[in-house]
């Protein structure tokens, strides 16, 4: 769990499950508190003669500092979680939120004919081309060196693990 915590602390891009997320926040809190304590300690040394009231004030300020950017932190954590693996099982087997059936929207002409509007989104998908091909991700530009570098270890010419 020490490793996990470490990973959480560095907050690497979206590489954390929900548990890590919690760890991250916890460890963040802890480190904040530690800092606070340290700050308080130095303060007490410097101003040993000062009254306790001021010390309390200082503590309050520290508490406020802890609350700074809470919203931003939360939104960052949320985004990280979004980026992290979506629950694929839910995605595959979960119930599909079906779009409201457009059947009802059909206009009637003279109470006799119904205007059928072909290819609204859901029906269009149902009647799309039956093809197994998986089109590539267009955001990948294979002219870029960094893209090429991202797969170098897939080849025997790349870096090998120590146990291989």
């Amino acid at each position: 769990s020490e490793e996990e915590r470490e990973a959480g602390r560095t907050g690497d891009s979206g590489h954390c499950s929900e548990e890590d997320e919690e760890d991250d926040e916890e460890s963040g809190d802890e480190s904040m508190e530690e800092e606070e304590d340290a700050a308080n300690a130095t303060l007490t040394k410097q101003t040993a003669s000062e009254s306790e009231e001021e010390e309390e004030e200082e503590e309050e300020e520290g508490a406020l500092r802890w609350k700074e950017g809470l919203q931003q932190k939360a939104s960052e954590a949320f985004l990280r979680q979004q980026e992290a693996a979506p629950n694929l099982r839910k995605l595959v087997y979960g119930s599909v939120a079906e779009a409201a059936d457009s059947e009802d929207e059909e206009e009637e002409l003279g109470g006799l004919f119904r205007v059928s509007r072909p290819q609204n989104s859901k029906k269009f998908q149902a009647n799309a081309l039956d093809c197994s091909r998986f089109n590539p991700d267009t955001s990948h530009d294979w002219d870029l060196e960094e893209m090429l570098n991202s797969i170098r270890d897939c080849f025997v010419t790349g870096k090998w693990d120590e146990n291989q």
Partner: peptide
């Protein structure tokens, strides 16, 4: 089922 997609 509905529609001709995934026919095969």
């Amino acid at each position: 089922y509905d529609g001709c997609n995934f026919f095969r």
